[in-house]
Amino acid sequence: MSAQSEKAGAAAKDTMSARAKRAFEGLDLFPEVTVFAALVGLAALSLILALLPLFGSLSLLVSLLIAAVMAALVLIFFMHMRRAMTVVVLSGMAGIVWLTILFGLTLSDYLTRAGPFGSSIEPPPAVGRVGEGERGL
């Protein structure tokens, strides 16, 4: 399938100028291309901030925040959330809200365990276990 579409893609390319001009005129690229430029800019920013020793342990948080902004851009412009029905927006939101429930209550266990943080899990000596090979499908 992909080989064939490549050949067709290539065919489309060589008459690119003739057909594309006809195909594209009138199709305004505007909101999409500016959004794309913003996304590339944000990605570059995230990369730079990650490589610089500015934030130390918070650097992951910063890059995740930038990723969230990029995600918002994609949601609004590429996935047309503005024009979507409220129930469609709600179902998208539900996924994220239920994720916070999973994270929140799971962390409520890990953050409140006795002893200094993370001490409850020590790597034990190699435990005796069934050999790799024996474990069938």
Partner: peptide, 14 residues
Amino acid sequence: LFLWPLLYLAGRAG
């Protein structure tokens, strides 16, 4: 967009 920071940008500071 979320996997990229978690797997590639994490732990790169300095």
